[in-house]
Amino acid sequence: MLKSGLKRLLGRTGFDIVRSINNRGGVDDFLPFEPTMRAARSAGMSVGDYLDEVMNGTPGATQSTIDELRGLGVFAAGPKTVLEIGPGSGRYLEKTLRECTPDRYEIYETAKPWADYLVETFRVVAQPTAEGDLGATPDGSVDLVQAHKVFNTVTFLVAARYFFEMARVTRPGGRIVFDAMTETCLDPVTVRDWAAKGGPGHDSYPAALPRQACLDLFGHLGCSLEASFTAPLGFASTEVLVFTKAA
């Protein structure tokens, strides 16, 4: 009953974790900590694999993104400092740490039970959180800044505030990785599916971001697009963008 109840909670529209950075309720509202941990243990799975396979119906989705990033050499550079916005359950964080061994891994996560779990489990540094603000992190101090399944849950201006901050904290030569629901992911059939399956009460999700506006903004901030690829999101997809900050 627990598994089916949780699956209904998110699975009815292919929802991923909804981050608390939008101030409309955090990850712990949509993915309650204790029941989710119990369900994953009962299934004999890691939390991340449980979310991919049971909650979202896309086994291996997280790993496929990590594999793409590995192929692009994102981890080969040996990032010494990593920052992740909205790690939620830590499914991307865990797999990132299998690919590289940073000296410091900062997280900005407002769902306290999940943040505490990540600190205890992975010895990451939880920073104070405020919408659009990475103020606890110094300028030019991070080798890899990433956010996964975050910017499809917030408005463009909220995302843009984070984009300014992401560029600020990234060191010259460092990388910025995030996914967004750009027009690449919104063909007419997919839009029809979202409209039919999204359900009432979730009209702000998924939030589309204009791809060219993102590219122009990061270009203005001294960051160039290195690569992009699509990643699964339930029955649809998002586009992962990889930027490099000019040295």
Rank of each mutant, 00 (worst) to 15 (best):
D133C: 13
G140Y: 00
P59Q: 08
G25H: 07
I176M: 11
M45Y: 01
R123Y: 03
M55C: 06
E239N: 06
C214P: 00
Y50K: 04
V177K: 04
G71K: 12
T101V: 13
A231Y: 03
A208V: 05
L157Q: 15
A236K: 11
T182R: 07
F243I: 09
Y117N: 12
R98Y: 00
S42C: 10
Q212I: 09
R123F: 03
I17C: 13
V177H: 03
D216C: 07
M166L: 06
V47Q: 02
G14Y: 05
H148W: 12
S141R: 09
A247R: 14
H148G: 02
T182D: 05
V125D: 10
T62A: 14
G5S: 12
A76K: 15
H148K: 08
V119N: 00
L10M: 14
A246F: 02
G135R: 10
Q212S: 13
T190E: 10
V47D: 02
F15E: 03
A115Q: 01
I17P: 00
R168G: 01
N152G: 15
A227E: 09
G90V: 03
N152K: 11
G60A: 10
P128Q: 08
K3A: 14
T230D: 11
T13Y: 11
V189G: 06
L97R: 07
G57W: 00
R41G: 10
R24V: 01
S204K: 11
V154P: 02
T137F: 01
A167V: 02
M166A: 13
R192E: 14
C185A: 15
R8H: 09
G44Y: 05
V47H: 00
P210M: 06
F75D: 05
K80M: 10
Q146D: 01
N152C: 15
D52L: 04
Y117V: 03
A247F: 06
Y205H: 13
G198Y: 01
G86N: 09
A76I: 07
T121A: 10
T137E: 00
K3W: 00
P113M: 06
E99P: 08
V142T: 12
A246K: 13
Y162I: 07
K112Y: 00
L97Q: 02
L97V: 04
A147N: 04
A115R: 07
L186F: 02
K245V: 07
V242K: 07
P87W: 05
D179W: 02
F33I: 05
P172D: 09
D179K: 10
L215E: 10
F164Y: 15
V74M: 10
A61M: 14
P188F: 04
P200D: 06
W194C: 07
V158F: 00
